[in-house]
């Protein structure tokens, strides 16, 4: 489902004397449907960079990133937009939402953009929020006012609202208590069960051991010059 081959990435900092910083080289990995692959490597080795390149908000210098039939490395913006709507989900570490929008609608949004009726989308969102222990009295409030842990759970609910065939998870269990961690792991297992291809970054070793079928160390993709 996700097939990354020979991917490289260089940052050029024009405002710092056009310094060119190669950050990735020859990155290659695959994630099959129903499989969860964990990225490992020291901080700064390029785990998040790789995730962002697959998501499409970092440009690839060369190589290919196939998600389904779309090559994110070369696709038109509108193809990536379509990919993100229906196929590729992403739970980042940051919640970015329009202020003032109620939590319930934030979580329902991915279903709404796919054309689901408002009631249906909201009721599905409610189920997820309940599972993630977000008290119902908070659903009508904007998550921008929530604590870090609550925001993280809203972000997860939103990421799992639509059954994406491919999922990117960036530290989904960070800063969660035991019960919520358990729920998130269950959500990941359910997603795997329905055939989602999942690529994740898990610092939580127990979580990694439980849900990941394979690990890929991104240190192997670090350019030699830098390493």
């Amino acid at each position: 489902m996700i097939r990354v081959s020979n991917l490289s990435k260089t940052f050029t900092l024009h405002n710092q004397g056009a310094a060119a910083i190669p950050v990735m080289e020859g990155a290659t990995l695959t994630v099959a449907s129903g499989e969860c692959v964990g990225l490992t490597g020291a901080s700064g080795a390029g785990k998040s960079t790789l995730m962002r390149m697959i998501w499409g908000n970092y440009l690839a210098a060369s190589g290919s990133i196939k998600v389904g039939d779309t090559d994110v490395a070369t696709a038109e913006p509108r193809q990536i937009i379509a990919l993100r709507r229906a196929t590729l989900g992403y739970v980042s570490q940051f919640l970015r939402v329009v202020p003032r929008v109620p939590t319930l609608d934030v979580v329902a949004e991915p279903l709404r953009v796919l054309g689901a009726p408002a009631d249906e989308a909201r009721s599905h969102a409610a189920t997820l929020l309940t599972r993630l222990n977000i008290p119902e009295r908070l659903w009508s409030l904007s998550p921008t006012t929530f604590s870090g842990g609550e925001q993280q759970r809203v972000n997860i609910a939103r990421g799992f609202a639509h059954p994406y065939p491919a999922l990117l998870l960036d530290e989904p269990t960070a800063s969660l208590d035991a019960a919520n961690r358990e729920t998130v792991l269950a959500l990941i297992e359910e997603a795997k069960g329905r055939g989602a291809a999942i690529l994740g970054i898990f610092h939580d070793e127990g979580a990694r051991a439980r849900v990941c079928d394979r690990l890929v160390d991104v240190t192997a993709f670090t350019p030699k010059a830098v390493a």
């Binding site: 050029t12 024009h14 962002r52 908000n57 970092y58 440009l59 913006p77």
Partner: peptide, 21 residues
């Protein structure tokens, strides 16, 4: 020009880098 989050998160042109920063 490009995807919004790509242009904002990984700007390529010197001016965009300046603008975003």
């Amino acid at each position: 020009q490009g995807l919004t989050d790509q242009v904002l998160d990984d700007p390529q042109h010197p001016y965009t880098q300046l603008l975003v920063s």
